Amino acid sequence: MNDTGVVADPAPGQTSRTHRLRGLAATGFSATLAAMVATTLAAALAQAVGVDFKVRTRTG
Rank of each mutant, 00 (worst) to 15 (best):
residue 39 T to Y: 11
residue 45 L to W: 15
residue 30 S to Y: 03
residue 12 P to R: 00
residue 2 N to E: 05
residue 10 P to M: 00
residue 45 L to K: 11
residue 58 R to L: 14
residue 10 P to T: 04
residue 59 T to D: 11
residue 54 K to N: 13
residue 12 P to V: 02
residue 54 K to Y: 02
residue 22 R to A: 07
residue 47 Q to G: 14
residue 24 L to P: 02
residue 2 N to H: 02
residue 14 Q to F: 12
residue 16 S to W: 05
residue 5 G to Y: 02
residue 49 V to F: 13
residue 46 A to D: 14
residue 27 T to A: 13
residue 39 T to V: 11
residue 1 M to C: 10
residue 42 A to K: 08
residue 51 V to C: 04
residue 53 F to Y: 05
residue 19 H to L: 12
residue 35 A to H: 05
residue 28 G to D: 03
residue 43 A to E: 08
residue 33 L to H: 02
residue 18 T to S: 10
residue 36 M to K: 04
residue 21 L to E: 08
residue 45 L to P: 01
residue 60 G to I: 00
residue 44 A to R: 13
residue 7 V to E: 13
residue 9 D to I: 10
residue 23 G to I: 03
residue 56 R to T: 14
residue 34 A to W: 03
residue 3 D to S: 14
residue 35 A to V: 02
residue 18 T to N: 06
residue 35 A to W: 06
residue 3 D to K: 14
residue 53 F to R: 01
residue 11 A to C: 02
residue 13 G to M: 00
residue 18 T to H: 07
residue 44 A to Y: 13
residue 14 Q to S: 05
residue 30 S to T: 15
residue 42 A to L: 14
residue 19 H to D: 15
residue 18 T to W: 09
residue 36 M to G: 08
residue 58 R to S: 15
residue 38 A to K: 07
residue 44 A to E: 11
residue 29 F to M: 06
residue 60 G to R: 09
residue 2 N to Q: 06
residue 37 V to P: 00
residue 39 T to E: 13
residue 43 A to N: 11
residue 41 L to E: 10
residue 54 K to F: 02
residue 43 A to I: 09
residue 17 R to K: 12
residue 59 T to G: 03
residue 11 A to K: 06
residue 7 V to W: 01
residue 4 T to E: 15
residue 28 G to P: 01
residue 21 L to N: 12
residue 46 A to T: 02
residue 46 A to I: 05
residue 18 T to D: 12
residue 47 Q to E: 15
residue 26 A to Q: 04
residue 9 D to Q: 11
residue 17 R to W: 07
residue 13 G to I: 00
residue 43 A to G: 12
residue 33 L to E: 06
residue 28 G to L: 06
